[in-house]
Simulated scan of single mutants.
Amino acid sequence: MTSINHSQLRAFHAVATEGSFTKAANMLSVTQPTLSGQVKALEDQFGVRLFDRRKRKIELTDIGRNLFDITFRLFSLELEAEQVLTSARGLKRGHLRIGADAPYHSIPFLAAFHRRYPSLRLSMSIGNSEKLVADLLDQRCEVAIAANVPADPRIFSLPFRQDYLVAFVDRAHPWANKRQIDLTDLAGKRLVLREATSTTRRTFEAAIDAAGITIGEVLEIGSREAIREAVAAGLGIGIVANSEFGDDVRLKALEFAGPLMQSMEYVACLNDRRTTPLVKAFLDIVRESIADGKGSR
């Protein structure tokens, strides 16, 4: 009976998860030629093709997708076993990967977690809610902190903060002396907005569509930091969640009169992973924060 090389299987799983040999090599801390050689050796051993290699991307073949379903379960159980053994030592070792839609909500949780478990390794990636949910389902992170997490039986979500949208302008803007504007004031105005898949953009566009408002040109930028710089440079009016506005002296926040455009922030994990030691420990931190009144508005 032909045995499967565990390192080759892990190499395949990393490439299938990351969708890139380069990213997978970085994740496993090996060189790309080494990783490619491991995947090729696995393919050659069983006489199969696991990936269709194209110029700029790779795609799983049918047998690759079937194998990925198996390795997904296999390495999930391996990680769960490691966390069970880690918990026997009082959570003194382990690596918790967190995805967040913004640092403002997530850093206080990470800081509290680090204070309680200083020997554990933490890493955080930033992305919009859609990407974070995909990362969670594909196990690129164990915990996601994001707005408006969709209902999905595979996902457990814990609401911790309700937020609302505000507009903001540069200090030289004619509205800089205002405290509040009407949503209708944005008709025909040039706006600086996140990408179409972001929760902020979707919430805002739902509100203006419901109000029958036609805005002007949209400058679309894929990061909050770049949006702040664009608005500060006078390139348009920005829209952001109130808790993420910060204290940039170049900018002025403007609340909207009337009903608030609201979103809810959640801490989410895979439903079948919520009781694993590392994830449970993080959820406990979040619950304690909510109970102390630090996690919700």
Rank of each mutant, 00 (worst) to 15 (best):
5 N>P: 12
13 H>N: 14
13 H>W: 10
14 A>F: 12
18 E>R: 13
21 F>H: 14
21 F>A: 14
22 T>E: 15
22 T>Q: 14
24 A>S: 12
25 A>N: 13
26 N>Y: 06
27 M>Y: 15
32 Q>P: 10
33 P>W: 11
34 T>P: 09
34 T>N: 14
36 S>Q: 14
38 Q>S: 08
41 A>R: 13
42 L>D: 06
44 D>S: 11
45 Q>I: 03
47 G>P: 05
47 G>C: 11
49 R>W: 05
50 L>G: 03
52 D>F: 15
53 R>C: 11
53 R>N: 14
55 K>Y: 12
58 I>K: 11
60 L>Y: 09
60 L>C: 10
61 T>N: 12
62 D>Y: 06
67 L>I: 11
69 D>Q: 14
77 L>G: 05
81 A>D: 13
81 A>F: 07
83 Q>H: 08
84 V>Q: 09
84 V>Y: 04
90 G>L: 06
92 K>E: 08
97 R>E: 04
98 I>N: 00
98 I>E: 01
99 G>I: 01
102 A>G: 01
102 A>P: 01
106 S>G: 05
106 S>P: 02
106 S>M: 09
107 I>D: 10
109 F>V: 03
110 L>V: 03
110 L>P: 03
119 S>D: 09
120 L>P: 02
121 R>K: 10
125 S>M: 10
127 G>L: 02
128 N>W: 01
130 E>M: 10
132 L>G: 03
134 A>T: 12
134 A>R: 11
143 V>N: 04
144 A>N: 05
156 F>M: 08
157 S>P: 04
159 P>M: 08
166 V>S: 04
169 V>D: 03
170 D>I: 01
172 A>H: 12
172 A>Y: 07
173 H>P: 10
173 H>K: 11
177 N>V: 13
178 K>C: 12
180 Q>M: 14
180 Q>S: 15
182 D>P: 06
183 L>H: 08
187 A>N: 02
191 L>H: 03
195 E>P: 00
196 A>V: 00
196 A>K: 01
199 T>C: 02
199 T>Q: 01
200 T>C: 01
201 R>N: 04
201 R>I: 00
202 R>H: 02
204 F>T: 01
212 G>N: 09
217 E>R: 04
219 L>V: 11
219 L>W: 00
222 G>L: 04
222 G>D: 12
222 G>H: 06
222 G>M: 02
226 A>L: 12
228 R>T: 03
233 A>M: 06
239 I>E: 02
240 V>L: 06
241 A>H: 01
249 V>W: 00
250 R>L: 07
257 A>Y: 12
257 A>C: 12
260 L>H: 08
260 L>T: 08
261 M>Q: 09
261 M>C: 09
261 M>W: 02
262 Q>A: 07
265 E>G: 04
269 C>A: 15
272 D>R: 11
277 P>T: 05
280 K>T: 08
281 A>M: 08
284 D>F: 09
288 E>M: 06
289 S>I: 03
289 S>D: 13
292 D>F: 14
292 D>R: 15
294 K>T: 10
